[in-house]
Simulated assay, not measured.
Amino acid sequence: MAISDMPMLSALRTKMQWHQERQRVLAENVANSDTPKFRPRDLVEPKFDKVGGPAAGGGMGQLPMMRAQGVNISPAGASATFAQNNRVGYETRPAGNAVNLEDEMLKVSANQMDFAAASSLYSRSLGLLKTAIGKR
């Protein structure tokens, strides 16, 4: 087995490929921000198990809020899940376009930062493994 075929490095490589493809999809959304009846698209993030392989369950649900020992104070009117601030839909303009440039640009910058973190972790892990086996 090659060093780059290890499950953790393979998962990081898959994650970087996903970020690359997501950047392409988000760029299409921005480019079509004035196209009539265009709906923005996004990709579903890949899920991995503890070993680094694809997760069997697939999608991630909402996490319920839990109380530790019943002493936590909950704010008035708080939602029962952490996903309370997620927007459900997009505002559609009269031409039928639903692209919100501010949201898309936030997604683009978050995607760039996540890709940079994954690529840095990949290169450092690969370098550490090469050092450990004496090839560096």
Rank of each mutant, 00 (worst) to 15 (best):
N97H: 04
V25Y: 15
M113R: 06
S33T: 13
S4G: 06
A117Y: 11
N86S: 05
R136Q: 11
Q62P: 11
V99K: 02
N32H: 07
M6H: 06
V30R: 08
K50Y: 13
F82S: 11
A98M: 01
P54V: 12
V99Y: 06
G77T: 00
P54C: 02
P40G: 08
A11W: 14
F38S: 06
P40F: 15
G53M: 09
S74G: 03
E21R: 14
I73E: 04
P54M: 08
E45S: 13
L106H: 12
G52I: 03
Q69A: 13
L43S: 05
E28N: 15
P94F: 00
L129K: 12
A11C: 04
E102H: 11
Y90C: 00
P54T: 10
E91W: 05
L106A: 15
A80N: 13
Q20K: 11
F82W: 14
T81C: 03
S74C: 00
G96D: 00
I73A: 09
S120V: 00
R93I: 00
Y122L: 09
M6R: 14
D34Y: 09
Y122I: 02
A68R: 15
E21D: 10
G58H: 12
R39A: 04
F38H: 11
D103H: 11
S109P: 07
A110R: 07
P64F: 07
